[in-house]
């Protein structure tokens, strides 16, 4: 029974592991880039909001609109629109490394918006107390805002990485590989329903692991209750 289920997939294991490796590679780099750009951008949005610590209402309106526009692009379209930029950065628009560019770029505005919302939940009174003690804006951001919002920031990273997993399945279109692409190639194109079911189950498990790890960290980091 069990061998029936695993029967056709056993010989595919090397390929599954390879695909998992590709997914891991895409997610790690895309996540890193998205966080490196998205967290500062989200912080900037928070700081320059009208009424905030360093308000710049006009610049905020511009960035706010830009973030909204980028967020409205369907990923598949963004992937194609970005081909020239990807080619410029990576040297090619095809392959696993090439997919990292649109993945990261599509996640930056999502990341920024979620970070902005997370920071907005930090108690204004605590920030004012820090101001009253003579803290600079930079000190307030690093020592108060990020500290108070740290569990929210981890939640944001969890959401974004699960999004990546689902977006990376589209990567197959430009030869990006990965576990989602594997499921489509074997399960869908070759009608190997058992392989597809197996791979989808694998993806479900990965999502569960990411979510549980995220939840665990959020619980550990949140001392507010």
């Amino acid at each position: 029974m069990l061998t029936d289920f695993f029967g056709p997939t056993i010989e595919l294991w090397p390929e599954i592991l390879h695909a998992l490796g590709q997914t891991g590679y895409m997610m790690m780099f895309a996540m890193g880039i998205a966080a490196l750009a998205g967290i500062p951008l989200g912080t900037l949005l928070y700081l320059i909001r009208p009424g905030s610590l360093a308000q710049q209402p006009r610049l905020y309106a511009v960035l706010d609109t830009a973030v909204n526009i980028l967020r409205s692009f369907p990923f598949l379209i963004l992937l194609i629109v970005l081909i020239p930029i990807t080619r410029f950065i990576v040297g090619t628009a095809i392959g696993t490394t090439a997919v990292i560019v649109p993945l990261a770029i599509s996640a930056i505005p999502d990341f920024a918006r979620l970070i902005e919302q997370t920071l907005l939940e930090v108690n204004r009174g605590v920030i004012q107390a820090a101001e009253a003690m003579g803290a600079s804006t930079f000190q307030i951001v690093t020592k108060v805002l990020y500290r108070e919002a740290r569990s929210g920031i981890v939640s944001t990273c969890t959401i974004i990485s699960i999004n990546f997993l689902s977006f990376s399945t589209v990567a197959g279109l430009v030869g990006g590989g990965g576990i989602g692409d594997f499921a489509i190639r074997y399960g869908y194109y070759r009608y190997q329903l058992d392989v597809m079911a197996f791979t989808v189950a694998l993806i479900v498990i990965i999502v569960q692991i990411i979510q549980s790890t995220g939840n665990y960290l959020v619980r550990r980091l949140d001392k507010r209750h």
Partner: peptide, 13 residues
């Protein structure tokens, strides 16, 4: 200049 508040405003984390 020190300051204290009605709702304390301690850093919870």
């Amino acid at each position: 200049i020190g300051m204290i508040f009605q709702h304390f405003h301690l850093i919870e984390n």
